[in-house]
């Protein structure tokens, strides 16, 4: 609304996220195997794949909630290393929305939203509150501003979580199965907000099983299996003519119910 009102332009070639030969182990178990992926500014990427294939692990590496052990990840020109300052800088540019919302239950909705702008961006309280109300309107729940998260429905909580991430005015948004914990009637209200966000030109990486959503907004589909990226393709090709057998099998399973 404030910044990305320009039309979608995924054609820009500037890469904002670049993963090169990223490998990650949990103990002996290799969760990511030579992941290579480049995401351009304004690009909307939908990641899918069977459970345990490493989707969450991959996107959580992008904001260093998980640490990769080999390879390089560059986000917005900054390489992710042990440097704490770099990590915090990247995190403030990368918003994340979780499956389980993770709102702060002891803070009112408005305080959930103003917390990071005030304490990370050093924004004055008044300004942060104006910004928060702006985003609450954008996710269509301004009337809930002074309630506590526990008083909201799941769909409302997830929309607050999206607004909270947007209040940091991030360049990139990560979504890890944002609708998986929701009842069917609430999924749409969250997806609608995400579609709107996609239309505003935000760079998004979305892990989801909502294939309807993927067909509507994705510029690129990424299919993962067993820690590898198996297929990367635009949705028209991905859904109509996938190359890999594993993709075909997955799609046949997920699209038949």
């Amino acid at each position: 609304m404030t910044r990305q009102s320009a039309a979608r332009k995924p054609e820009t070639t500037e890469a904002v996220i670049r993963l090169s030969d990223v490998n990650k182990w949990y103990g002996e178990f290799q969760a990511l195997k030579d992941i290579n992926l480049t995401i351009k500014r304004g690009e909307r990427v939908v990641v899918c794949g069977p459970s345990g294939s490493g989707k969450s692990t991959m996107i959580r590496c992008i904001n260093r909630l998980e640490e990769h052990q080999r390879g390089t990840i560059v986000v917005d020109g900054i390489e992710l290393t042990d440097n704490l300052k770099n990590i915090e800088a990247i995190r403030s540019e990368v918003g994340m929305v979780f499956q389980s919302f993770n709102l702060f239950p002891h803070l009112r909705v408005i305080d959930n939203l103003t917390l990071a702008p005030m304490w990370v961006r050093k924004m004055p309280k008044k300004e942060a509150e104006t910004l928060a109300m702006e985003y609450l309107e954008r996710v269509r729940i301004p009337e809930q501003a002074y309630k506590f998260p526990g008083q909201l429905s799941g769909g409302q909580q997830q929309r607050v979580a999206i607004a909270r991430a947007l209040c940091m005015q991030p360049k990139i948004m990560l979504f890890d199965e944002p609708t998986s914990a929701l009842d069917p009637e609430m999924i749409k209200e969250v997806l609608d907000v995400m579609i709107e966000l996609a239309e505003s030109g935000m760079t998004m990486i979305v892990v989801t099983h909502e294939m309807g959503f993927a067909k509507t907004v994705a510029d690129t589909m990424v299919f993962m299996d067993a820690g590898e990226i198996v297929e990367v393709a635009p949705p028209s090709i991905f859904f109509e003519a996938p190359k890999s057998d594993r993709t075909k099998l997955f799609l046949s399973q997920i699209l038949t119910h």
């Binding site: 995190r91 993770n102 702060f104 990370v120 979580a161």
Partner: peptide, 23 residues
């Protein structure tokens, strides 16, 4: 405190002390 609280705070860019104090 559930792990998700730490992750949400970290994902917003809060440092250790601020996260501890506020969340």
């Amino acid at each position: 405190i559930p792990r998700g609280q730490y992750e949400a705070a970290e994902a917003l860019g809060l440092g250790y002390w601020r996260m501890t104090y506020k969340i």
